[in-house]
C-alpha cells in the first residue's frame, strides 16, 4: 500500500473541492483527495479548519462551491445524480449522535431500511439486531435514546448507519461529545469496522486511533490539505512547520 493509492479502486474521489460560506468564509480551498476501497483515511486539523465541511460535501449535506465529488463512481455534484441513492450508500456518524429521540433504538435503525431499502419489518429488525450485536448493545433495542449513555447512543448511531449496508462510513468527531470513560467503547467498535475492511473517512482528535487504524493521515489547516501520508511518517517527521506546530499543541 502506497501513500497515494489504496488497495482497490477509488471509492471517493474529490477534485478541486472548494466551499465558501456567505461569499467570504473560505472553509475549504481546492482540496483533492482520493479514498480507495477498503482504505481508512483519518483527517486531523485545528478547529474551524474545514474538516467537517469536507466530510459533509462528500454526501452533499453541504453543496460544494466548486469542484467535483465522486462516490462509488457516481458524481454527487452532478444535478442528475439521485443524491438519495448515493446517500444510502454513505453512512455518516455525527459528533452529536443525532439519534431520533421520538423513536426507540430499534425504530431508529429500521426507519431508513424500510423506507429507503424497502425491507420488510422482519428483515429490518433482523438486520437491526445483527448490528446492535455488532456494536455490543442488543439489550437496548427497545430503549429510547434518552435512556442511553452517550457512548451507547453513539454506538446506536453507528449501528443505524451500518444497517443500510453502506459502502463508505464517514465519522465526524464521533467521540468528541463523549465523557472520557466512553471514548474507548466507541473507538473499539470503529476499530472492529476497520478490521472488517470498511472504507472509512474519520475526522478525530484521537491520535491513538489514527496511529492504529489509518492507512493515511491527512492534516488540514485553513481549508487546505497541508500534509498527507502514512500516520507513522507524518507523526514522526512532519514535513511542514504547520503540522509540527499542531502536533506540538495536541500531543503530550
Amino acid at each position: 500500500m502506497t501513500s497515494d493509492a489504496g488497495p482497490g479502486a477509488n471509492m471517493i474521489s474529490i477534485r478541486g473541492l472548494t466551499k465558501t460560506f456567505d461569499k467570504t468564509i473560505h472553509a475549504v480551498r481546492n482540496v483533492d483527495l482520493d479514498v480507495a476501497e477498503g482504505e481508512v483515511v483519518v483527517i486531523v486539523g485545528p478547529s474551524g479548519s474545514g474538516k467537517s465541511t469536507i466530510l459533509r460535501c462528500i454526501n452533499l449535506l453541504e453543496i460544494p462551491t466548486e469542484g467535483t465529488v465522486e462516490v462509488d463512481g457516481f458524481e454527487v455534484t452532478d444535478p442528475r445524480t439521485d443524491i438519495d441513492r448515493v446517500r444510502a450508500e454513505v453512512g455518516m456518524v455525527f459528533q452529536q449522535f443525532n439519534l431520533f429521540p421520538h423513536l426507540t433504538v430499534m425504530e431508529n435503525i429500521t426507519l431508513a431500511q424500510r423506507k429507503v431499502r424497502d425491507r420488510s419489518r422482519g428483515e429490518a429488525r433482523e438486520m437491526g439486531m445483527r448490528q446492535l450485536v455488532h456494536v455490543g448493545i442488543p439489550e437496548k433495542a427497545d430503549a429510547y435514546p434518552r435512556q442511553l449513555s452517550g457512548g451507547q447512543q453513539q454506538r446506536v448511531a453507528i449501528a443505524r448507519a451500518l444497517a443500510m449496508e453502506p459502502k463508505v462510513m464517514l465519522f465526524d468527531e464521533p467521540t468528541s461529545a463523549l465523557d472520557p470513560e466512553m471514548v474507548k467503547e466507541v473507538l473499539d467498535v470503529m476499530l472492529e469496522l476497520v478490521s472488517e475492511g470498511m472504507t472509512m473517512v474519520v475526522v478525530t482528535h484521537e491520535m491513538g486511533f489514527a496511529r492504529a487504524a489509518a492507512d493515511r493521515l491527512v492534516f488540514i489547516d485553513e481549508g487546505e490539505i497541508v500534509e498527507i501520508g502514512p500516520p507513522d511518517e507524518v507523526f514522526a517527521n512532519p514535513a511542514q512547520e504547520r503540522t509540527r506546530a499542531f502536533f506540538d499543541k495536541i500531543l503530550y
Binding site: N59, L61, D84, R85, R87, A88, E89, V90, G91, M92, F94, Q96, N98, L99, F100, L111, A112, K115, V116, A157, R160, A161, M164
Partner: peptide, 23 residues
C-alpha cells in the same frame, strides 16, 4: 427541531418528504 435531525435523516437516504414526515 435541531438541523442535525434532518441531516441524520437525509444522510441515511431518506427523501426530503420522508425526513419531514418521519423525523
Amino acid at each position: 427541531v435541531p438541523p442535525g435531525q434532518s441531516e441524520a435523516g437525509r444522510s441515511l437516504g431518506l427523501t426530503r418528504r420522508q425526513t419531514m414526515s418521519s423525523v
